[in-house]
C-alpha cells in the first residue's frame, strides 16, 4: 500500500492505495466522498467526472497514484461557502435538470468545466461538450437548458412549452 496525498475540495487529504486504486475509489472508499458515481467500466458514462487541476477527467479512468499532489474538485465542493447551491447546481434545480440524480454529479462537473472554458455556450456547444456524459432520465432537454441558464442566458424561449 502507498499513501497518496492530494488536495480535495480545498482540503489536504491522504489515503492508502494500491497501484490499481482508481481515483474514483480513492474518493468514494478512501475519503467517503460518495457523490462521485461509477456508472460504467469503459470510460463512457461520465457519472464519475471530477476536476483535476481544473480539468475535467473521468475519475474511474485515472489511477490515484498518477494524480498524487493534484488539486481535485468533486461535486461535494461545488456549493457556495455558506452551503447554498452554487450557480450551476441552482440552475439544475430551477430547470429540473435531474431526475434520479445518479448522472448529476458528473453532469454538473462537466458543465462547470464547459462554462470555465466558454462562458456563453450555444445550445450546440453545450450538447457537444456533454458528449461524454450519459443521462437516461431527462432526454437532456432540461440539462441543456440548465447549463445555458447557469451561463446567464435567457432560456425562456428555448422551446415552446
Amino acid at each position: 500500500m502507498t499513501k497518496v496525498s492530494m488536495t480535495v475540495n480545498g482540503r489536504a487529504v491522504s489515503a492508502e492505495t494500491e497501484g490499481r486504486t482508481l481515483l474514483s475509489a480513492y474518493l468514494r472508499e478512501g475519503l467517503r466522498l460518495t457523490g462521485t458515481h461509477v456508472g460504467c467500466d469503459t470510460s463512457q458514462c461520465g457519472a464519475c467526472v471530477v476536476h483535476v487541476d481544473g480539468k475535467p477527467v473521468k475519475s474511474c479512468t485515472v489511477f490515484a497514484q498518477d494524480v498524487a499532489g493534484a488539486d481535485v474538485r468533486t461535486i461535494e465542493g461545488m456549493a457556495n461557502a455558506d452551503g447554498s447551491l452554487g450557480v450551476i447546481q441552482q440552475a439544475f434545480q430551477d430547470h429540473h435538470g435531474l431526475q434520479c440524480g445518479f448522472c448529476t454529479p458528473g453532469m454538473v462537473m462537466s458543465a462547470a468545466a464547459l462554462l470555465a472554458e466558454n462562458p456563453k455556450p450555444t445550445e450546440h456547444e453545450v450538447r457537444h461538450y456533454l458528449e461524454g456524459n450519459i443521462c437516461r432520465c431527462t432526454g437532456y432537454h432540461n440539462i441543456v437548458k440548465a447549463v445555458m441558464a447557469a451561463s446567464g442566458q435567457d432560456v425562456s424561449a428555448l422551446a415552446a412549452e
Binding site: 458514462c45 450538447r127 422551446a159
Partner: peptide
C-alpha cells in the same frame, strides 16, 4: 458495453416541444 450499445447523447436529440 457502451462501446457498442449506443445510448442517446445530448447531441443526438433536440429540444422537445411538449
Amino acid at each position: 458495453s457502451y462501446m457498442d450499445y449506443a445510448m442517446p447523447r445530448a447531441e443526438d436529440v433536440p429540444f422537445y416541444n411538449v
